[in-house]
């Protein structure tokens, strides 16, 4: 009862982000997704220090082996160790998948918000979106390689130059759906009462977008992001067929899956590993996204 006499709270107010974190860590799906994701990252990046077989080393006598003690995941048609290829491939695929997704969602989100929020920009930005949606993908990618491969390789070195090119190529060809979806949501949100209220107390456009618009369009963005990762990992493998990707002896999950498809009947385990890895990564990101979305929604926080 003494508390009433002393209105000053003794503990500092809980910050919003602490609430979010509390909610997030009690979200079973998010936790499971997070742990799984960290586990995949750990195996892929730390595994090669323990499992030191070179992913490009060819041991021709050991080709087409099933899982065994020397090769836990078996070997491919040239006798390369599938486990080390999976790890090396994972490094590239996860890096490409996440970066390209961030770029696509970032670009899509930005254009979508700007188009939805500022009426004057809407026409121009949406016609730009229409244009990008209409461009034939394959010739566009081939033009990009032709124009930029040598310049980028020269500036950033062959590997990072290629990485940059691939990420930009995927990003620049997959931001449009996100932009259209975000714009649609922003158009509807903008007319809601709370925006009017916020405007009436003099909130700037920047504040309006960051504080009121963005948190409310998070869920479609999250879905786009999850689907985007799967897309980017698969698209990367398609790019390498065009000669736009990494050198052909450089494994990635998408490429491992593609190369193994023809051996589906003879060595089914070879398709299983990359398929499983891509699915698990996408699932874990999906659950993470779900958790994050729930955590950021004040209405269900603490339920």
């Amino acid at each position: 009862m003494t508390e009433i006499g002393n209105p000053q709270p003794r503990t500092p107010p809980r910050s919003q982000w602490r609430d979010v974190w509390d909610q997030f860590k009690h979200h079973r799906g998010a936790l499971a997704g997070g742990v799984l994701f960290l586990l995949i990252i750990a195996v892929v990046y730390l595994g090669p220090f323990i499992w030191t077989i070179d992913p490009t080393f060819i041991d021709i006598r050991a080709r087409n082996q099933g899982p065994n003690l020397t090769h836990p995941f078996g070997t491919d048609q040239l006798g390369r160790d599938t486990f080390s290829r999976m790890m090396a491939g994972g490094q590239t695929s996860i890096a490409v998948g996440l970066t390209a997704m961030l770029l696509a969602v970032g670009l899509g989100g930005l254009i979508g918000v700007l188009a939805g929020f500022f009426r004057r920009l809407d026409g121009a930005l949406m016609r730009l979106t229409d244009l990008f949606l209409s461009l034939p993908l394959l010739p566009l990618l081939l033009v990009m390689v032709m124009l930029f491969r040598e310049t980028l390789s020269a500036t950033f070195g062959p590997e990072s130059g290629m990485f940059l090119l691939i990420v930009v190529a995927i990003g620049i060809t997959s931001w449009m759906p996100t932009a259209r979806i975000v714009r649609g949501d922003v158009l509807a949100l903008k007319e809601r009462e709370f925006i009017l209220a916020a405007r009436s107390i003099g909130t700037t456009n920047f504040g309006m977008i960051t504080r009121h618009i963005l948190p409310n369009i998070l869920s479609p963005i999250m879905v786009s992001a999850t689907l985007g990762i799967a897309n980017a990992i698969i698209t990367e493998s398609a790019l390498s067929f065009l000669g736009l990707g990494f050198p052909p002896d450089f494994p990635t999950w998408g490429r491992l899956l593609n190369d193994a498809t023809v051996y589906l009947q003879d060595y089914p385990e070879r398709v299983f590993w990359p398929g499983l890895a891509i699915s698990l990564t996408v699932l874990s990101v999906n659950y993470l996204g779900d958790g994050l979305r729930d955590a950021l929604d004040p209405r269900i926080r603490g339920r």
Binding site: T226, L227, A230, I233, I234, G254, L257, N258, T261, L264, V271, G275, I278, S279, T281, V282, L283, N286
Partner: peptide, 11 residues
């Protein structure tokens, strides 16, 4: 749905 989306049609 997520596994279905992760597994590309070529496979």
């Amino acid at each position: 749905t997520m596994v279905g989306y992760s597994v590309p049609p070529f496979f």
